[in-house]
Every structure is written in C-alpha cells, then in structure tokens.
C-alpha cells in the first residue's frame, strides 16, 4: 500500500515520468497509465483551447479592437449563416474545383516530363538550368501575365495553379529518377529486362518517395496560390469571399473564410501525408537507422 502512495506522490511531484513497468497489469498501474494518457491529451490540445478562449475574451474585454478582431463566437455565427445561405458551399466548391484542376493538370504533365528529363542525361543537362530559373520565380508575381493571356476567368486562375504546382513535382521527379540506386538497375539489367520493364518495375517504385514529397508540396501550394489569385480577380471562391468581406466590412465573414481555408489546407495535407506514408512504408526512416 505504502509503495503505491509513494509512486503516486512522485508522479504528482515531478514530471509524469514514472516507471510503471511492474505495475502495468495491476489496478494501480492502469490508473497511472490512464492518468498519463489524460496528461498527453491535455498537452496536445491545451494551447489551441487557450487560443480560442483568448480569441473570445480579448475582443470582449477590449484588449484588441472588436471591429477588427470580433470574438470567435461572432465568427462562428457568420460562418453558419454563410452555410445556411448556401454561399459558403458555393465558394468552397469554386475554390476546390480550381485548385484541384490545376493540381491534376500539373501532375499529368510534370510527372512524365520529370521522368524523361531525369532518365536521359543529355536532356537533363539541357533543361535543368532553365528549370532552376523558373522554380525560383514567385508564381504570384506572374499572375498579371496569366491575366493578360488568359483573361480574368477561370483559365487564368487554373493556369497559375498549374504553374505554381508544376515546379515542385517536376524537379522532385527528376531528382527521384536520377537518384535510383544504380545497383538495383544493374541487378535488373543482368536479367535482361527491357527498358519498359526496368522503368515499370524498378525506376518508378524507387522514385515514388521523393516524387511524393514534391506532390505533397504542390498540394499545399495549390490552395495558397489559388486563394491569392482569387483575391486579385474573381467573382466566387474563398479568396474572393475574404476580399469582398473585407471591403464590405463584413469582418466576421472574412474570418469565416480564413478559417475555412485553413481547415481545407490542413485536410489536404493530411490526406497527402497519409497517401505518402502508405506508398513509402518500405523506406527505412532516418531516425530508425
């Protein structure tokens, strides 16, 4: 009995690092383990909760100007109203369609091109300097060019998303193909594989992890670039919503739009991360080596 109270005392005193290895299967051990996971949940979420509380309290108390940062409850009200009117769905749909289209088009051309450039040394030598140049330009700075050529409709917005997404995918695919372990290629060649078999069975699977890094980067870039483009010239979409709300002083709606974009970006990243871990499970992670 006294042993247990000692353990719990040490636990309360210090930093939750208690060796419960002997007590794991006892009632006391599971109590401590339960406490431990509660603490972990607490740690994970406490800051977000505090921030939300702050967002609610600070405007009301006068710490920040209520006009420019309304309490989060008002933002939620505006958020729900936009959903009720069907406006939020329309904006979300418009933005997602544009971002997704641009992303897919980028994938469709950048992956094959990257594989070709990565595989043929001479092609790679010719193209790489120019690619490095393009990759380092800020995509949004070129948006006026897209408007000039493609107008203020959907085309220019999807166009700029394609542009911004293409470079990470292209460059990562090139690197991925170039860095396939030459031993693997040698082992496969010794069996007399055709080039097609080599590509399908060795190069592509080996290249997927590095390719996915570029794909994931492009996923988040697509939303970023699109929202900015919508702010500059659009009649629908989340970027338009934010801009319009700001002009019309519908500040809670503006924040509603901002929160929505953050949530969408978060979800997209999670999905791509999940896909990435599924297809790269075979690669030993750096920390485990």
């Amino acid at each position: 009995m006294s042993n247990d109270t000692e353990v719990i005392k040490k636990y309360k005193e210090k930093n939750f690092e208690v060796d419960v290895s002997e007590k794991k299967h006892t009632v006391e051990g599971s109590k401590i383990k339960g406490l431990r996971s509660l603490i972990q949940i607490f740690d994970k979420n406490i800051l977000i909760v505090l921030l939300l509380v702050l967002w609610e309290v600070a405007p009301r108390v006068g710490l920040v100007d209520r006009v420019f940062l309304p309490p989060i409850s008002e933002v939620f009200v505006a958020w729900f109203k936009l959903f009720q009117k069907g406006e939020m769905q329309a904006h979300i749909a418009a933005s997602l369609i544009r971002a997704f289209s641009g992303f897919i088009i980028a994938l469709l051309w950048a992956i094959p091109a990257g594989m070709l450039i990565g595989w043929f040394k001479r092609v790679s030598n010719i193209f790489t300097p120019v690619l490095e140049l393009f990759r380092n330009t800020a995509a949004l700075a070129l948006f006026p060019v897209f408007i000039l050529f493609l107008g203020i409709g959907e085309a220019s917005k999807i166009g700029i998303v394609v542009y911004a997404c293409s470079w990470p995918i292209l460059l990562n695919t090139i690197t991925a193909v170039k860095n396939v372990d030459p031993l693997l290629i040698k082992a496969a060649l010794s069996m007399g594989v055709t080039n097609f078999q080599l590509f399908r069975k060795v190069i592509i699977p080996a290249a997927i992890p590095t390719m996915f890094v570029g794909i994931r980067l492009s996923g988040t870039t697509s939303i970023l670039v699109l929202v900015a483009a919508e702010m500059i010239g659009a009649k629908a979409g989340l970027g338009y919503l934010i801009q319009y709300a700001q002009y019309s002083f519908l500040i809670p709606s503006m924040y509603a739009g901002i929160i929505t974009i953050s949530i969408i970006g978060f979800i997209i990243n999670k999905i791509l991360l999940h896909l990435e871990s599924k297809y790269t499970a075979w690669k030993p992670k750096a920390e485990n080596q």
Binding site: L183, S190, K201, P205
Partner: peptide, 14 residues
C-alpha cells in the same frame, strides 16, 4: 545467368 552483388541490390519495396 544470374548475378549476386556485394550490395545485395534487393528491391526495398518488395
């Protein structure tokens, strides 16, 4: 002919 190399050259995703 079959070849066995020093670095094993196993396809790591298989």
């Amino acid at each position: 002919r079959g070849i066995v190399l020093q670095g094993y050259a196993l396809l790591p995703w298989r």
